[in-house]
Design a binder for these strands. Structure first.
Lengths: 365, 365
DNA sequence: AGGAACGTTGACAGCGCTACCAGCAACGAC
DNA sequence: GTCGTTGCTGGTAGCGCTGTCAACGTTCCT
């Protein structure tokens, strides 16, 4: 009958092995651990595989080996720019590795996260990336019991489940407020939307800084559970102004809100930064380009994603990092929107020039 | 010895079947086609599965059935807002279905796309979503030979591989230019970046409209292969102005560029729309919020993703749509940035108000 | 020279599920 | 009463790959 062919006409490992003149198991090893083969067989299998155009059947491999080569990723939003940068890092780092990414959207719900976690874990992923440190206790239990490496990203905190990579949103917010204090601002408002745990911690950092300076005032804080948007930034700022017309600065929980505030200032002919300073968070690309250029807290999102995926893959392959918690820090990028008159008088870049960024107040741990 | 347990301690279908007092194959059917079972057995299997907390092993299922429940998605960019909206639609529509999404990033390279396609096809996906209509001939051959439904998204054109959903970028650009003509503009510049095929077709639409009006001038067109950004919008606009100071409008290939142009106008004290009108493309959220509010061409991105996934799943399950090509149309959203003095004199929304959108020039096929 | 140690290879036996087809009961048509 | 026909159920036989462990040849040491 000659050599058997798989029903679908696809090449199997057995065919490769036959052509190479080795046993199937040896051919199998070639794909998983080539170093274990003698050079002679290695080249024979390699050329046989190439000649036949062999592609391994992942389902069969997963079934036989009792594990998959899938990294599960749980993020709260698919559309938030912040997460797309992180995601790009994750995908870039996973490319070229044998692992593929399985992505799911928790929509900022830890209950949804728990549900998805259960789904993921049931398929024995090779590793898992989850967002933040605020899982349900049930989720935490499952993650701790999981027999694969776990990476928590976006922020750092106590009691990592396994590995953790991010930065302190609390400290970042404090640094932003410190910068505003430096520039002489005192009545600093806070504008926040969505209020997920990380935004909440930024608010906490803001609150702590204000309290220490004896400047805290609950009425300076405007937040909403509504998803963030530029338009919302303008609306929240309008609320803030209506309540507290004497504010001299606004710290926005993210850059979209900051842009909305800027537009609202423009609508009302409020001079930025002379009448009101604006500071955003994340340092999205447009911040450097706005008029005036907008101060923001830069976070290393792409690096966070790529490092997380790279570390996770290392851990999957047995090389656990000596430092399981990595603080990627942040940088307050000071731009025109928060610089006082005196400093703006000798601008580092002329007003009309394509916005140039000047880094400062770095926190690189 | 009692009942056998899987090595990992997980519940297998056989255990469920045993508890339910049916054969494994009957239990299997319960999960794939419950209607085929008698009501009695159906409930027995269901409660047995629940009691044991059974979760099917997808790898075994894929191996035995020779097909996966994976939908492959190939998009050019993970960070472009346009695609994140589409993706969200795809993920939302796939949720609740049995299918999972396998995402890959082609980085705007059709060679990379071909490579990824080969990878995907080798794993026999249940269906495939690819971006655009400009595949390599090799890719096209593979897709046509694939034994799963294929969905092309983002635009429509002749010769669909299988199914197609999108809109005409050419027509959308023409509609935008027609609107500018309506408003009395004649020297209309084009600013484009990245220049992927869809941006190219917008440029073609612009060119055709200008030619027909006898206003075409190659010097009005500024493009670059560089990835798009707000900052780049400002820079390209600066180039355009340097070359053609007498332009009275700019059509931007996307909204980020438009925002950059707006900021650059502000930097140079150019009045918008009085001196120069601005029209963007995609109608991202911030366009309605800018000062002045920015005219744009709205596209139905989320709907595109969700409909594509829903139609694909239907097709996978044998219910092919009677109409395999779906035109989702577009809408020119006219805002302050392109409305002439006369009309602005009686604004539909006061200048200072939170931006309100007024839809018009709809193309809903 | 004998044996241990190492590097390399192969046989066997599944992994958990489903395709295929056969079997059986219940029912209606002729 | 016999013969389909339909609806449901089960047995058999893998899907393509890898874990385990034994066996082989070679080298190096004593």
């Amino acid at each position: 009958m000659g050599r058997k062919r798989t029903k679908s006409g696809k090449i199997r490992l057995a065919e490769v092995a036959e052509l190479a003149g080795v046993s199937p198991i040896t051919a199998s090893r070639f794909f998983r651990n080539p170093e274990a083969l003698s050079v002679a067989k290695r080249t024979r299998v390699e050329s046989a595989a190439r000649e036949l155009g062999y592609v391994p059947n992942l389902a069969a491999r997963a079934l036989a080996s009792q594990r998959t080569e899938v990294i599960g990723v749980l993020i709260p939003s698919l559309t938030n720019n912040v997460f797309s940068d992180v995601l790009r890092g994750i995908y870039d780092a996973s490319e070229g590795s044998r692992y593929s990414i399985q992505l799911s959207n928790t929509r900022y719900s830890i209950l949804q996260e728990e549900k998805l976690l259960r789904l993921f874990l049931a398929q024995k992923p090779a590793g898992l990336i989850v967002t933040g440190i605020d899982q349900t206790t049930e989720s935490r239990t499952m993650l701790e019991a999981a027999d694969c490496p776990i990476m928590q990203i976006m922020e750092i905190g106590p009691n990592p489940i396994d590995m953790m990579i991010g930065f302190s949103h609390y400290d970042a917010a404090r640094a932003a407020i410190a910068h505003l204090f430096d520039q002489g601002h005192r009545r600093i408002g806070f504008v926040g939307a969505r209020m997920d745990p990380r935004v909440q911690r930024r608010l906490d950092g803001y609150g702590a800084a204000m309290k220490e300076a004896g400047l805290h005032d609950q009425r300076l804080i405007v937040t909403t559970a509504t998803p963030t948007s530029v338009t919302l930034g303008g609306a929240l700022f309008a609320d803030l102004l209506a309540r507290e017309p004497d504010i001299d600065a606004v710290f926005c929980a993210n850059d979209d809100l900051a842009l909305g505030v800027l537009f609202e200032c423009r609508r009302r002919d409020i001079a930025v930064p002379d009448q009101i300073a604006i500071v955003g968070f994340n340092d999205l690309e447009f911040m450097a380009s706005a008029v005036p250029t907008l101060t923001s807290v830069r976070t290393n999102r792409y690096e966070m994603g790529s490092t997380a995926a790279a570390m996770l893959i290392e851990a999957i392959e047995g090389k656990r990092p000596e430092q399981p918690v990595l603080d990627l820090g942040f940088t307050v990028i000071e731009r025109q929107s928060s610089q006082t008159q005196r400093q703006a008088a000798s601008p580092r870049s002329p007003e009309w020039a394509p916005a140039v960024q000047n880094d400062s107040v770095t926190n690189d741990p």
